[in-house]
Design a binder for these strands. Sequence first.
DNA 1: ATCACTGATGCGAAGGATTCGCATTTAACG
DNA 2: CGTTAAATGCGAATCCTTCGCATCAGTGAT
Lengths: 193, 193
Amino acid sequence: MAQASGTTRPGGRTARTREAVRAATRELLAESADGTVDIAEVAARSGVHLATVYRRWRTADGLIIDAVVDDLASRSPLPATGDLRADLQTWITGLLTDLTRPGDLAFSRALLRAGGEGRDALEFAEPRIRQIQATLDAAGVTVLTWVDLFELVLAPAYVRALLSAPMDPAVDAVRLVDNVLAVRSARERAAGG
Amino acid sequence: MAQASGTTRPGGRTARTREAVRAATRELLAESADGTVDIAEVAARSGVHLATVYRRWRTADGLIIDAVVDDLASRSPLPATGDLRADLQTWITGLLTDLTRPGDLAFSRALLRAGGEGRDALEFAEPRIRQIQATLDAAGVTVLTWVDLFELVLAPAYVRALLSAPMDPAVDAVRLVDNVLAVRSARERAAGG
DNA sequence: ATCACTGATGCGAAGGATTCGCATTTAACG
DNA sequence: CGTTAAATGCGAATCCTTCGCATCAGTGAT
């Protein structure tokens, strides 16, 4: 026989379809005012048949997640100079600025929607998580982990953006940084004393 | 003429319809394993016509939000004894325990989904917000507001529950409390110095 | 190179979900 | 009571999603 049953086949036409759909999704997402994407439009623009899009991506959220995860690695890296306050300030200001754009919110909204219907959605954030950890390591901080930055920075920023209005980078970044440093100090004092 | 155009009409049959649908939604939500509700089932059980349910509630999330908001006021009040650590510990442990139940997650998921499509979703939380503020006031804390508790406690707890797995009350409540108190100390030191 | 094999796709039709138009009911007000 | 228009019920129309089957094309072996 040619091959064992159940093999996957990522090359050639399949890869072309994938890329066409991803590109169409990215384009339509950029054009969309509310961070929404219509499956029929994605199919039309990509030239891929509607039924195929449904089969492989299932939902509009699936399209968004796949498209965004695909170029998540190409994002600008986080600063890791060893000066924790400065690094955090830079990172968080940029993050909050991103969240003022509807297109950037679409991804997180899609993730939250998809969460609970499948696997752990945090796995998508893994590359970013490693960068966050690197920032902490560069500063020689051992009492904080990426989980703390997730809780103190990412969660509030995203929830506020999704639930009411995005934070103001100029105003809120400082508070978030201060909160992180407050927790750091408290833990170092507790550990040292 | 009878009345000016554009009046709303909340009494009588409308109220009956509303209540029937809310009750059906609550029942089906309690029976649902995944915090999902089917509009057709709600219509069938409530005896309200399918088209009416669509007209007034639009989506399944709309049903869930309306039903849960409706009895949000009947929740047990937050402790406000003046001992901030104890009050926070009690509240957060209860909160994290609630979030381990799928039914309780449904509401927050629905809110996050609906967010961005309508008005500020935080307005639903207003009664709870006032209780949180009361807890802080009882402890004589002036450097923290409900916004801080939202950022330091609610946001991380909900995001974790929605995105991956709920927190463990026994383990994570302590950390969240410590974080709040760390921020409080830092701010009081900054203000006092 | 060429072949057999099978996963992926295209296509149209079937099946549901959502919305629409209109007739009827009924709360609100004089 | 009588009038008025909001809310509802009802069935049809529309739209979205899934299905079954035929075809296409990459994969590995010859």
